[in-house]
Design a protein around this nucleic acid. Structure first.
Lengths: 144, 144
DNA sequence: TAAGATTGATGCTTCAATCTTC
DNA sequence: GAAGATTGAAGCATCAATCTTA
């Protein structure tokens, strides 16, 4: 096997993979315990909440999340059926649609955040010093 | 929204999510470009390659990867059909089975590693200094 | 012809139920 | 009864094809 990565590089990479996998499992588990929907739903609600007038075009929303365009269509279908958001025709462009959160969507967002954020605090933020957090943020931000 | 996480904690967490998502997309893309199977297949081949006699019990293998036991059963089915590994009855315990890599499996492993490792080097390792890599590894290792 | 979004088909993942052996 | 592993059913993700409007 060629030495494409040295030991430090490889162990750092594996640490990233392991930490991510472990943390996401814990988050999904905590949400399920509280009978709350998966993290993807939170991401969509959060992206809409931050947006002007709580709404985004489908394509913009797809970019804010990890989903493909068709994957997003399906997820928005489910969330619309659950009453968490609505589709609105886009004024001036009859091809497109906006997704807009409903009151129920914003309420769910506020129920999910303590569970999501609490898990991140307990298992991630609380384990690291401010110096480490800064180093991690600055290093990983360079990836994108 | 309650201040469950401060700005530094939140931006570090988002940096971790973004970096992971970006890197995995690039890896999967690079593998697909070379007509190679997805990263999960590599993980299974790698776990078996490292193991004594290139074999592991199904349950041990499931722990080494991010998959559930039933998910692993299905993946091993596909990989066995592709000739990359075989199931062997476990001597002394007729409930269980070992998964063992074949020659073809070990060959594929060696084709995948340059593509996988090369992408990790280019987009991850090369962007960070040794000091940053150590800090990242040490901090993230504490999560598990 | 291209952009925005959806759909059909297919493959993958997951849960709970099942089978076999301990 | 419990552990090791598999299976059926159902939900989810993804690709390419499609539909509509620009």
């Amino acid at each position: 096997m060629e030495p494409i990565l040295d030991d430090l590089q490889l162990s750092s990479w594996r640490a990233l993979l392991n930490a991510h996998s472990t943390l996401l499992q814990r988050i999904e588990h905590a949400l399920a315990e509280e009978h709350l929907p998966p993290l993807d739903w939170y991401d969509v609600l959060w992206a809409l909440y931050r947006a002007p007038e709580h709404r985004l075009r489908m394509s913009e929303l797809a970019e804010h999340t990890v989903l493909s365009r068709s994957g997003l269509t399906r997820l928005v279908d489910r969330m619309e059926a659950a009453g968490l958001l609505e589709r609105q025709p886009a004024p001036g462009d009859r091809r497109g649609a906006f997704a807009v959160t409903t009151d129920a969507g914003r309420e769910l967002l506020q129920k999910m955040w303590p569970v999501y954020g609490g898990t991140v605090r307990e298992h991630f933020a609380r384990q690291l010093t401010a110096t480490e957090l800064r180093a991690l943020r600055d290093a990983l931000s360079r990836i994108v």
